[in-house]
Simulated assay, not measured.
Amino acid sequence: MTPGFEHLDAELEPEPASLVEQGVRFGRELGQRGGKTEGRPADKAFRDSLFDDS
């Protein structure tokens, strides 16, 4: 581009977002699209099975 138009060049080619920023943006968009549902409570048998060493 010709000299003196650096501010326009910055608008045409925005700096790439970091991986963290992309992840945050993805999470927000996913939360907005998704339906709000209640989670099912985990019973004692399920919780104990997570730590079963046998």
Rank of each mutant, 00 (worst) to 15 (best):
residue 1 M to Q: 08
residue 2 T to K: 13
residue 4 G to Y: 02
residue 5 F to L: 15
residue 5 F to E: 08
residue 5 F to I: 07
residue 6 E to M: 03
residue 6 E to P: 00
residue 6 E to N: 05
residue 7 H to I: 03
residue 7 H to N: 11
residue 8 L to D: 01
residue 9 D to A: 14
residue 10 A to D: 03
residue 10 A to G: 02
residue 10 A to V: 01
residue 11 E to W: 02
residue 11 E to R: 12
residue 11 E to M: 10
residue 12 L to V: 09
residue 12 L to D: 01
residue 12 L to H: 02
residue 12 L to T: 02
residue 12 L to Q: 05
residue 13 E to V: 03
residue 13 E to F: 04
residue 13 E to N: 14
residue 15 E to A: 08
residue 15 E to Q: 04
residue 15 E to M: 02
residue 15 E to R: 05
residue 16 P to M: 05
residue 17 A to I: 02
residue 18 S to Y: 00
residue 18 S to P: 00
residue 19 L to P: 00
residue 19 L to K: 10
residue 20 V to E: 15
residue 20 V to M: 11
residue 20 V to G: 03
residue 20 V to C: 05
residue 21 E to M: 01
residue 21 E to R: 06
residue 21 E to S: 02
residue 21 E to V: 00
residue 22 Q to L: 08
residue 24 V to W: 09
residue 25 R to E: 02
residue 26 F to V: 04
residue 27 G to Q: 07
residue 27 G to A: 15
residue 27 G to T: 05
residue 28 R to I: 13
residue 28 R to W: 06
residue 29 E to K: 06
residue 30 L to S: 07
residue 30 L to G: 01
residue 31 G to P: 01
residue 31 G to R: 11
residue 31 G to M: 09
residue 33 R to Y: 06
residue 33 R to L: 10
residue 33 R to P: 01
residue 34 G to D: 12
residue 34 G to Q: 15
residue 35 G to F: 08
residue 36 K to H: 14
residue 36 K to D: 12
residue 38 E to Q: 09
residue 39 G to Q: 14
residue 40 R to Q: 13
residue 41 P to L: 14
residue 41 P to Q: 09
residue 42 A to P: 02
residue 43 D to Q: 07
residue 43 D to H: 13
residue 44 K to R: 10
residue 44 K to H: 08
residue 44 K to V: 08
residue 45 A to V: 08
residue 45 A to T: 08
residue 45 A to E: 15
residue 45 A to Y: 06
residue 46 F to M: 08
residue 46 F to V: 11
residue 47 R to T: 09
residue 47 R to K: 15
residue 47 R to S: 06
residue 47 R to F: 04
residue 48 D to A: 15
residue 49 S to D: 07
residue 49 S to H: 09
residue 51 F to Y: 14
residue 51 F to T: 11
residue 53 D to Y: 09
residue 53 D to I: 14
residue 54 S to R: 14
